[in-house]
Nucleic acid binder design. Structure first.
Lengths: 206, 206
DNA sequence: CGAAAAGTGTACAGATCGGTTCAGAGCGGA
DNA sequence: TCCGCTCTGAACCGATCTGTACACTTTTCG
């Protein structure tokens, strides 16, 4: 294995094990055994286990949000439909055989002190996801994009929490239907002037 | 302390510490120190730590569900309003300074294997809560009480998960508003014959 | 009252925890 | 080529983990 790849490989291994067993239950010795790396090597890349957890969550945060963006953006161009498409992404996530609940919620559940860096990392991730929902809600011209984003977020969290217990993908579909119903009743601002951006209309008319 | 109270005292102490630090992070030594009890005593009441966790969750399960029932039933007699009142109970729970997220979801998050007894205890609790929602939805004569219960449950889980991260009670109010909106659009069966049960009408007319 | 049961405190076992040390092997770049 | 950096593997550290052993005191109860 090339030197430059070791850090990433360690993060991937750690993420897999944290997801499988949790944070406290996953020991350093297991991580290095599964990664096929000497303990010295791990501690050259990360000063403490906590730092490893933080780096792993940071990696996962970017992976997750990028994956959601990519998935949603290729599903549809309509922002309102994109808001709903986030639930399809969620369903795909939950259907994964490795799914064992949201890693960030679990991280916050094992590091409950609000000043704990791990808790704060989980909080930061949730904030960024919420910001994405708000971005979509704003683009969809909902009258109250902040509230819409919070509602969508609450449905996401509910679906994942229920899925963590039931280990089925049904809650994500349920949440999507609820989101559909709620959004249908929401006030929208008038669409922007039809002058410059022909792209959306072309898309809609085909 | 009287002998007969020791077991309950141990469970209360353990629950408090599990809630504060999590399950793996809470050691037996801390529990006995906080409970002011010898280690031998703890191991006379519980064979293993896992058994202590299971007994603690069982206690908490009954406490929680009894408290919710009692709260909800004294708020209103109308079953549909009771369904909404569950969110007020949730809000009170979340407002507690000791709130650090749902202990059952955290338990499932630290014991992710579906055959783990701790996971199964968490699952059982969630099933019983869902059954209560279904009981209320049925009494409220919703056309599809099962689906209603699942939706209410999803909103509950979402609210608690978001509250665990944000540490505010707002998500519970948000969830209640969403539930109100969703229930308002739901089909209801015709009310039962007005013959025998004057109690509800009397209550409604006062 | 007196025996059985259950409490206490301490010491200890064996495993595992996160983290360090060190000598040596192997690869990378000037 | 060769210097320097990194990875290896294993030993080791002190702390902590769950759980046990034991000798002794206190409470419960017929």
């Amino acid at each position: 294995m090339r030197r430059s790849e070791i850090r990433g490989h360690l993060l991937d291994t750690a993420l897999r094990l944290f997801n499988q067993h949790g944070y406290h239950a996953t020991g350093i010795d297991l991580i290095i055994a599964e990664a096929g790396v000497a303990k010295t090597t791990l501690y050259r890349h990360f000063e403490t286990k906590e730092e490893l957890i933080l780096a792993a969550l940071e990696r996962r945060d970017e992976e997750d949000r990028n994956a959601m963006r990519a998935f949603v953006e290729q599903q549809t161009r309509d922002p309102a439909e994109r808001l709903l498409a986030t639930f399809d992404f969620l369903e795909a996530t939950v259907r994964d055989k490795q799914f064992r609940g949201c890693m960030f919620l679990s991280a916050a559940g094992e590091h409950k002190d609000t000043v704990d860096p791990v808790f704060r990392a989980a909080l930061m991730h949730k904030r960024l996801v919420l910001a994405y929902f708000e971005e979509l809600a704003h683009a969809a011209r909902f009258a109250e994009p902040k509230r819409i984003a919070i509602e969508i977020n609450l449905l996401h969290e509910g679906a994942v929490a229920v899925a963590q217990i039931t280990r089925t993908a049904e809650p994500t579909r349920q949440a999507k239907r609820m989101a559909q119903q709620l959004l249908a009743a929401e006030e929208r601002l008038a669409p922007p002037a039809r002058g410059g951006d022909a792209e959306q209309r072309t898309q809609a008319e085909t």
